[in-house]
Design a protein around this nucleic acid. Structure first.
Lengths: 343, 343
DNA sequence: TTGAAAGCGCTAACAT
DNA sequence: ATGTTAGCGCTTTCAA
């Protein structure tokens, strides 16, 4: 492998000059620059990452902590949709990082000490931790090690770390605004079971708040029906609402697992979508598209969140680390499952 | 950050002794060892990865090339590529690498030059390339750079590189043999979308070959129906085949994402499994078990393949690189979704 | 605008 | 069993 000295010799300059041509940190005469560049090309020179890291104290690597969602007790992945969202994040993170000259190191250890290992060993300049839960042991570990770290998700106590997450409140506003704009005056959100709300899961509260406020200011009737996923549970939960004379003309389903059941229930009543009732899902596109009928949906903009996380990591590396929480806005993809309510 | 000299000073030994305690490359007296280990613990010392790489010419990093399956022209993931399988590989690779003291660097660039960048810059000691296609530009790039590389998949011309893959041809034979043995004379494979075949993903070609040959020699009628995953697409793709008078009595589904849709379509026709039609899935057990009815399946042992790839990469790094191709054989798990066809 | 030289923190001969 | 020392290839002062 060619070294910087080989290049320097070949170009008839000092090694430092080659370094400066590469980094652009000082001005180089056009003649010198082109000789150096020629030498680099001829030798197929690539700077040694380790040497660079050692001398500059910068690795140009971002560590990405990805919890492998293994099914408990087995050695197989949990058959969740999780995996799709995970990949979406990666699809947002990796290209953005590359575009800033950074590589991405995958850290899948469940050990919270993994982060420290990576940081203390100067293996990466910053850490992005994915799928942070309400109470996540990794959060404190990251904070304690005082390393540049970004959390994807919103823990109960961020310990002063920066976070990125989906703007659920905005998602709620968006859904209601879309439906109200089509003329709906009565909207029901089919949501996660009551226990989820009782457990102060912030995302559930946030999306409801967004919907409720927008509904109120638009003069739209709105209520929430929490339900378990099983079909009989869904049927039972929805019956009181759907049986009324002034039944809702639109449903917003924020409960992936219950989605098929909801559609079954509607089909049982022989209600057509969107002719008899409009439906919006809050779900990844892969889910929304795969239902019996494709559903208009609000998607978690995982890629945008990933890219944002990278930007925040860069800022943190540069020491511009004002700890902040950024919420990424939702967008609604119309797949034709909503329409003006029939009079 | 503490350095090896800090540790040495604190333990009252030479830096090299600390190094040897860490690497185990020469014997250390128990007394010295424990003093050094104490110093390491007290200082929270972690060796600087770059310095180590520079001095030892080993990065302890494996690069994992994962092509992000983006839908052309969009910024979303292509729905036809099995993200689950991708993650399964990762779930096999990352822990195995860690257990050997290696970290995993994610390389998602579609640029074939990415591999060379990583290798020539001494960013990784070896490269594992996933999802290798029949004719993959990356293959030649890897071979040309003469770096330790393992391909997951089977290109038309491996250019002398080692490969690991699932024995898809064997899987195809197995499926048809199983069904033909039960008396089926007309089998249809429900496969990935046409685009997958057009991109000449070798796995698709190989499983079809295995099925076709076995079918031919058993005198069984056989055809392939490529399809997208969405339910309407599946319904449309299957209709011409299922509507015929001599409809197939068995389906082999090699398309995880489409599996639910296929079952939906059969249910819509009120066809019972296996009474009215037999179904074999080529999918991970978690998927096959989770369907409306548990499906007999042939499993792609993706995790095992990933772990094997790591082992082969290690061997290659150690210079034990006899270029070889390992095909991991299929096995069929009977979950009762196939039966003798009704007359 | 360029060069010379001193490290960065570690490993691996080479000594003892 | 342990210490000494010479680099590994680069960045970045300090000089010119």
């Amino acid at each position: 492998m060619a070294t910087i000295d080989d290049v320097a010799r070949r170009a008839g300059v000092a090694a430092s000059t080659v370094s400066y041509v590469l980094s652009g940190k000082r001005s180089i005469s056009p003649a010198t620059r082109s000789r150096v560049e020629a030498a680099i090309a001829e030798l197929g020179y690539h700077p040694h990452a380790g040497a660079r890291a050692l001398a500059s104290a910068r690795t140009q690597v971002i560590a990405l902590m990805v919890p492998l969602p293994m099914a408990p007790g087995t050695s197989t992945l949990r058959p969740d949709v999780d995996v799709n969202v995970l990949m979406q994040f990666v699809a947002g993170i990796a290209p953005r990082a590359r575009s800033q000259g950074y590589d991405v190191l995958l850290v899948t250890d469940d050990d919270p000490g993994a982060a420290e290992r990576v940081w203390a060993g100067s293996t990466a300049d910053a850490i992005i931790a994915m799928s942070v839960q309400a109470e996540d042991p990794r959060t404190e570990a990251l904070a304690r090690a005082k390393m540049p770290a970004i959390l994807i998700g919103l823990p109960e106590d961020p310990h002063g770390l920066s976070c990125v997450d989906f703007d659920f409140e905005n998602a709620g506003r968006l859904a209601v605004r879309h439906l109200a704009g089509q003329g709906h005056r009565h909207i029901v959100m089919v949501g996660p079971p009551a226990t989820t709300f009782e457990r102060r899961m912030s995302f559930a509260e946030r999306i409801v708040r967004g919907m409720r406020e927008t509904a109120a200011s638009a003069g739209v009737k709105f209520s929430v029906v929490p339900t378990a996923a099983r079909r009989d549970a869904v049927a039972a939960s929805l019956a009181p609402v759907l049986d009324r004379d002034d039944r809702p003309t639109a449903l917003v389903v924020h409960h992936e697992a219950a989605l098929p059941s909801v559609l079954d229930v509607l089909r049982d009543r022989d209600w057509h979508i969107p002719g008899d009732i409009s439906v919006v899902a809050v779900a990844p596109p892969s889910i929304a598209e795969q239902q019996a009928a494709p559903l208009s949906s609000i998607e978690v903009p995982a890629q945008a969140i990933g890219a944002t996380a990278v930007d925040m990591a860069m800022a943190a590396i540069r020491g511009e680390g004002t700890s902040e929480t950024r919420l990424v806005r939702a967008s609604l993809t119309d797949r034709g499952s909503t329409a003006k309510p029939s009079a």
